[in-house]
Amino acid sequence: MSVILATAGQDDKIRFWEAPSGVCSRILRYADSQVNCLEITPDKQYLAAGGNPHIRLFEINNASNQSILTLEGHTGNVTSLGFQRNGRYLYSSSEDGTVKLWDLRSPTYSRSFDSKGAVNSVALHPNQAQIISGDQNGSIKLWDLGSSKCINDIIPDSHSSSTSSLGRVAIQSVDVSNDTLIAANNHAEVFVWNPNDASKTENGGEPIRPKAKFRAHSFGAYLLHAKISPDGRSLVTTSSDKTARLFDTTNWQLTQTLSQHSKWVWDAVFSADSSYLVTASSDKTARLWNLRSGAPVRQYTDHEFAVTCVALNDSST
């Protein structure tokens, strides 16, 4: 299959789609819980699904609907996951307060990092040597895989009027590219750093200040997901305001607002060439958007409840 598109959510089913036609081609049962996150290996051979509290791995080209591996070790909702470049290792975050690294030759984790607070999002640095996490306590932590230590703990200065008991706003989503590290809190503030600067230990107690900061959605809206495009030129954010928004990463100006969904937009993923976007929503649908025109070109509609996560791999390699 040249294009792998999968969606999941609160109806305990993972659906694969023929992206151009909108036809559901296969359904996998995830009986344990709702599905919180999905990720496809770079070689398109496997799909990982995170629920509560397991991670299950499915073989995409196998007719069997049974998972081939169950990863056990988290004790709460798995909130985010991804694969190392060669697909041999998987990393994950959870509401149990940990970030874990898994060698897929074993059902148990090889390393666990204690964030001391529920972790909402995790991303792997392009150098493949650091993991970035964002947590409910308002911290962005950088974990060094070589030393197994937290090498930095960044707490951005939020201007939100409603904060946690620690005076911080929960970090909802993190992502990183070669030259940009972003963290977005659930009150829709986005913070931007240079990844190399963020990797440095704070000097003399002075915080590492972001090079940019902006509000992605209006006051009162919750930001749910933020993702940098593969070409590094755009950032997408999704929100409870029923929209996905696109920002130019050179100046962080709003370029597009995608507003066809009728309920919360939970997740979004870019195509490999950054020309298309797929969004997932509580309105029980996923939508494919042409970002050149800003128009929806396909709708995926067979889910019975909210669609909260989407995975796409249409790369040619």
Rank of each mutant, 00 (worst) to 15 (best):
Tyr109Cys: 15
Arg168Trp: 07
Asp144Trp: 01
Lys100Cys: 10
Ser121Cys: 09
Val119Glu: 12
Arg168Leu: 07
Thr70Gln: 14
Ile132Ser: 05
Phe83Lys: 00
Pro156Gly: 07
Ser173Asn: 00
Asn65Gly: 15
Pro126Asn: 04
Ala129Glu: 10
Ser121Met: 06
Leu145Glu: 03
Gly134Cys: 08
Arg85Pro: 00
His159Arg: 15
Ser158Pro: 05
Tyr109Arg: 08
Gly167Phe: 08
Ala118Ile: 08
Ser93Glu: 08
Asn86Leu: 01
Leu71Trp: 06
Lys100Leu: 02
Asn186Lys: 12
His74Pro: 04
Gly87Cys: 08
Thr163Met: 10
Ala129Val: 05
Lys149Cys: 10
Cys150Leu: 08
Arg85Ser: 14
Gly76Gln: 13
Ile68Gly: 09
Thr180Arg: 08
Pro107Thr: 05
Asp179Tyr: 15
Ser106Arg: 11
Tyr109His: 15
Asn120Glu: 10
Arg88Pro: 07
Val122Thr: 08
Ser112Gly: 12
Gln66Lys: 12
Tyr109Trp: 12
Trp143Tyr: 04
Glu95Pro: 00
Ser112Ala: 12
Asn65Leu: 02
Phe113Cys: 06
Arg168Asn: 14
Phe113Asp: 00
Gly87Phe: 06
Ser64Tyr: 05
Val78Gln: 09
Lys141Phe: 04
Arg85Gln: 11
Ser147Gln: 04
Phe113His: 06
Ser162Ala: 12
Leu142Gly: 07
Ile182Glu: 02
Asn86Glu: 09
Gln66Trp: 03
Phe113Val: 11
